[in-house]
């Protein structure tokens, strides 16, 4: 079975003005159906790794394969298309377009992909929101919703084009425990029942514990799980 995400010796540096190594020689493999947590102290490079996996950033050395496709040589447009089709992002802050309703936000990537008509896109957006318990909120704008509701809209949007990969950067960072549990259960379902790869950066021990596996990072490097102190 091909891994959905596979990196080989990925390194990313910034010169600002002295060189900062964000991600250092990272090798990892994530299979379909896996829910993986990325943990580590603040500033260790978790978000930076996620941007590389999501093709928002390019490594200086090393390579990233998405669903078996080597992405290093692809143009920006090709990488963007791959992201549109196969990767869904969820961030700590909901990151919805404030001018659009929940439904319109979720419909954006569907309409951009252009495989469905406008009304089909709206129907699919509505359906996704309903699955996440937001039937009544579909025509509300984000500023009229609670934090938990917004984050569920963001997940619905990440799922819009039925991507094989879900990337979350502290998606529960701003939520109470009840909402956190709701989202963790959704991530587990997405991985275990729907066979997607879910990668979730988190500080929350509970979220990390709910994952199938944890990737530990320290100073940009992936390190083995530390034994009990």
């Amino acid at each position: 079975m091909t891994a959905l995400i596979e990196t080989a010796h990925v390194t990313r540096r910034l010169i600002d003005p002295e060189t900062v190594t964000l991600v250092d020689d990272a090798c990892l493999k994530i299979q379909p159906g896996e829910f993986v947590a990325v943990v580590g102290p603040s500033g260790c490079g978790k978000s930076s790794l996620l941007y590389l996996l999501g093709l928002l950033d390019r490594p200086d050395t090393g390579s990233v394969r998405i669903d078996g496709i080597l992405t290093d040589g692809l143009s920006d447009a090709e990488r963007t298309h791959l992201r549109l089709e196969r990767i869904g992002f969820v961030f700590q802050f909901h990151f919805l377009l404030p001018e659009l309703t929940a439904e319109a936000n979720v419909a954006l990537p569907i309409r951009r992909l252009g495989r469905l008509s406008r009304s089909q896109a709206d129907d699919r957006a509505h359906e996704l929101l309903a699955k996440l318990g937001l039937k009544g909120e579909a025509h509300r704008r984000p500023d009229r919703m609670s934090g938990g509701q917004r984050q569920r809209v963001a997940i619905a949007r990440a799922l819009a084009n039925d991507p094989a990969i879900i990337l979350g950067d502290e998606p529960t960072g701003n939520l109470d425990s009840a909402n956190t549990r709701l989202i963790v259960e959704e991530f587990q379902r997405l991985a275990h029942e729907e066979g997607r790869a879910v990668v979730c950066v988190t500080h929350d021990m509970g979220v990390a514990a709910a994952a199938d596996r944890r990737i530990h990072m320290l100073d940009g490097r992936i390190v083995p799980e530390p034994g009990p102190a």
Partner: peptide, 16 residues
Amino acid sequence: RRDIAILRAMGFTEGD
């Protein structure tokens, strides 16, 4: 600028 970043993360191109 934030919306631009969201759009790009969603899969909208620079041209979009």
